[in-house]
Amino acid sequence: MKNMPKRTKHRKVQKGRLKGNATRGHTVEFGDYGLQSLEAGWISSRALEAGRVAATRAAPGGRITIRVFPHKPITSIPAETRMGKGKGEPEYWAATVKPGTVIYEVGGVDADVAKLAMNRVAHKLKVSTRLVKRRAR
């Protein structure tokens, strides 16, 4: 699975700032348990994929949902390059995450398995996270 947009309007975008908490995507909707970010940050498509693989292995038979998508192209300039000469080339894709965003969800498995899976995923991410449970009402 290619974890990047199929088509973009612009190849490069500005860094932007991540201010405030998440006002959407902060509740568990599809699974029974979720992994909620406690920090703002960029999560690379590689990290997201690594998390998905880790969760699938830890919770075989479970249903893993990734709630974020790496829409943002992150550029960098090559090593040993003089400053200037414009913006660097896109290196990887990242999902922007605010505090409160539910990044992964897992369903269809027991609580212990779900917790283990989310713990394995948490180790792949560069933001601190917490486990959250779906609210019945």
């Binding site: 990047m4 088509r7 190849r11 590689r46 038979g61 080339e89 896109p90 290196e91 990887y92």
Partner: peptide, 27 residues
């Protein structure tokens, strides 16, 4: 629901992260 068939990823499927579609194009 039935489990999804796991597709074994070949090394060719793993696109380098640096690849980016050109503006307005679908790679």
């Amino acid at each position: 629901v039935a489990p999804k068939a796991e597709v074994e990823e070949t090394p060719d499927d793993e696109a380098p992260e640096g690849e980016a579609p050109a503006e307005g194009e679908t790679p």
